[in-house]
């Protein structure tokens, strides 16, 4: 009798989500669904924010970027961080993009693996942010983002980021082998580039709109006027 009760208890314990083995594809679908929910919540939350503080909106976008990197981890080298950092560089400038990039590299790596490579990833994404700040005036013209050039730049950024991170291999391999090392990683670079193009095509416009609604950085003309009045 006791055995039957124990069996029933075990049966009840087994009827919960922990007993379901979804497999890698099932988990990927769950992760994409979770990321979509976070993205939807981000859009809704952003509309209710009335403050012009860019810190709040950057924090919300960082949550989306970190979640995207962690949840899309099963697909090698496909994640939205590179494109988001590029957009942050375009809209918020180099300094903020460096803080943003470094924080995302550190926090996401606490979940998927932190080590020496975090420094290289933070450096790589910071360089992407700086690039975004440099090309900002050419990509974002008359309050409109030029999507096609941005797609090509984002694809290029996939390669550049991967090559910067690959520099970490010089800690362990002979420099003579470095070019071959880069060459062997090209399929993964292509994945990163294709993912970046996809994220630019689908996310760049909505994310750009969200970012521009909350920019509190003083425009250069304002700074110039301020400087003149000071003088």
């Amino acid at each position: 009798m006791n055995n039957i009760l124990e069996d029933e208890e075990n049966a009840i314990t087994m009827i919960d989500a922990h007993a379901i083995n979804l497999g890698p594809n099932g988990m990927l679908i769950v992760n994409v669904a979770l990321l979509s929910m976070i993205g939807w919540a981000l859009l809704k939350t952003e509309k209710s924010i009335t403050t012009q503080s860019d810190v709040i909106i950057l924090s919300l976008i960082a949550i989306f970027a970190i979640s995207g990197r962690i949840l899309l981890d099963p697909i090698p080298n496909i994640q939205p961080v590179t494109v988001i950092v590029l957009l942050v560089g375009i809209h918020f400038g180099a300094t903020r993009s460096i803080i943003f990039a470094t924080s995302i590299a550190l926090v996401s790596n606490l979940f998927i693996g932190h080590g020496l490579w975090t420094v290289y990833q933070a450096t790589g994404w910071s360089m992407i942010g700086i690039l975004g700040a440099i090309i900002s005036s050419k990509i974002y013209v008359n309050s409109k983002l030029s999507i096609n050039p941005l797609m090509y730049i984002a694809a290029l950024c996939g390669f550049v980021f991967d090559w910067i991170v690959s520099l970490s291999a010089l800690h362990v391999i002979n420099p003579d082998l470095f070019l071959l090392y880069i060459l062997s990683g090209i399929p993964f670079d292509v994945l990163h580039a294709a993912g970046n193009m996809f994220f630019v095509a689908w996310l760049a416009v909505p994310l750009s709109e969200i970012m521009t609604r909350h920019i509190s950085i003083e425009q250069p003309s304002v700074v110039e006027n301020f400087a003149k009045t000071r003088l």
């Binding site: 090698p76 496909i78 096609n148 797609m151 062997s184 399929p187 292509v190 994945l191 996809f198």
Partner: peptide, 24 residues
């Protein structure tokens, strides 16, 4: 842009395993 970017990503993902093996 959206159609081409989506097609490119799907194509690369589908062919990644075999293309990566050939490249290796």
């Amino acid at each position: 842009a959206k159609v081409m970017a989506t097609f490119t990503l799907v194509f690369v993902l589908i062919t990644f395993s075999s293309a990566s093996t050939e490249w290796n």
